[in-house]
Design a protein around this nucleic acid. Structure first.
Lengths: 246, 246
DNA sequence: CGTATGGTTGAGCCTCCTCAAGCGCTGTGG
DNA sequence: CCACAGCGCTTGAGGAGGCTCAACCATACG
């Protein structure tokens, strides 16, 4: 639900840019669709850049000149109303593709949740490369379909689930994505975003997010220190029961 | 916003199945990416079927064996919670593609809003055909990207807009899609779905939808007869002001 | 030490949901 | 032909969930 795709694929080894071959996203990004020998096509148009935490990759309304893949770190994709209300419509993790292809102007704002490394391509050049590499195009199609499925699940949450259910669902997504067992039972997760960002992601306010988390703690389903960005899920089954009521 | 894609493309004329050449969706569906001479590949695996109003094309949870393109009519794509709450996550119009590719099981329910004609393909065969026809694959990618953009706009609406704004936005989408000028000013639109379906689409209840529409009528922005499925937008600018407040 | 930032908690209110009744149209059967 | 049920829609009354506004706490940082 939370992920926008992590298709993998292995290819032969041969001469290719060293920067690409040692890249952390080599196996999980669109590049995974390229044979090592093909990588030079992407390498030729890409450049690496690290974006400081909080900084925007691009703003809604700007000319849409660049796209990228996430090498390390995290991004949020945000849509806004004219009077400034915000909704996070996507979270991007290493290997994910960043950008709105085939659009002259950007409609969404993308910004870094923490310091993140990107491999940035001029959009036009990237689109041309896509045409020459059908496997990459196919992989992008699959990713886009996954992102669409994710978006549809989130529409259900935003349209039909209450605050408690949204929070529980979000925590379960994290457990499935990054949770790992903890001594003494339960699974430990790192909540990768602030309360405010959780609110923007779940269509709630900071206060309701905080209250719902406190309530989950009070009922023994969750354990976390005040203000902590991590937490341990003590009763995963209870969370599932909240998300999927009888 | 409402559309999930209407890319067009013209190709040469030559020998091809008559059924396809005279098809109403020939110019707007994925088939538009095929030269007339290529159409036989799709024709060979497709069969026409008309779905009565209200009937399901497939159910969430079923094996995902078929996909299709809409020839005429309308479909809704629905996601549900375990306890029966529903959210319409997409509306499909003539030319649109139907189905979840590359998934073993369907997670969404698709059903007809009125009697609708489909061109149905076995999913596996369709996916193979896609591999052999890069232009079609590219077109599907574009459509999927458009659908994703649409979904993101709807996430913003569901997460951050109030009932009034959602209704106004929905009506404006209809105006842009199907509205045409009316003698005496205003633009006439046909609301293609029931109040209940509007509610499921907008994440509201039937009653709030009805109340909001009544209020828009009371303030002279809308005109419609009681229980009418059509309505005329008298003050489009006011609708825009509601959706995009200062 | 003072300020800023992110988080928690409380009080009150408002929007939207729930429950309920009623209206108008259609189709059906007596 | 009328009675009646069924359906979609409207409207009202009341309640609840989540928002707003506000105070307070903890930590980080200059």
């Amino acid at each position: 639900m939370l992920t926008e795709g992590l298709l993998q694929d292995r290819t032969d080894a041969s001469c290719a840019p060293a920067r690409c071959l040692s890249c952390k996203a080599r196996g999980s990004s669109l590049c995974a669709a390229m044979a090592d020998s093909e990588l030079s096509a992407l390498h030729a148009i890409g450049r690496r850049r690290t974006l400081p935490a909080g900084q925007a990759f691009n703003w809604a309304g700007d000319r849409n000149n660049h796209c990228a893949t996430v090498v390390e770190g995290m991004l949020k994709v945000t849509a806004s109303t004219t009077d400034g209300r915000e909704q996070i419509v996507g979270l991007l993790f290493p290997g994910d593709f960043v950008g709105e292809l085939f659009e002259e102007d950007a409609t969404l704002t993308v910004s870094a949740l923490c310091e993140t490394d990107l491999c940035i391509y001029p959009r036009a050049a990237f689109e041309r490369t896509l045409e020459d590499h059908p496997r990459m195009e196919r992989m992008l199609l699959r990713r886009t379909l996954l992102a669409l499925g994710d978006a549809r699940g989130r529409m259900l949450a935003l349209g039909r689930r209450n605050a408690r259910e949204r929070i529980a669902g979000f925590l379960l997504d994290l457990v499935e994505r990054t949770g790992h067992p903890e001594a003494g039972g339960g699974r430990r997760i790192a909540i990768p975003i602030s309360r405010g960002e959780m609110a923007d992601y779940l269509g709630l306010t900071i206060e309701t997010v905080s209250r719902q988390l406190s309530q989950l703690k009070a009922t023994g389903i969750l354990a976390f220190a005040k203000g902590d960005r991590g937490c341990t899920v003590l009763r995963e089954a209870s969370l599932r029961a909240i998300v999927n009521p009888a």
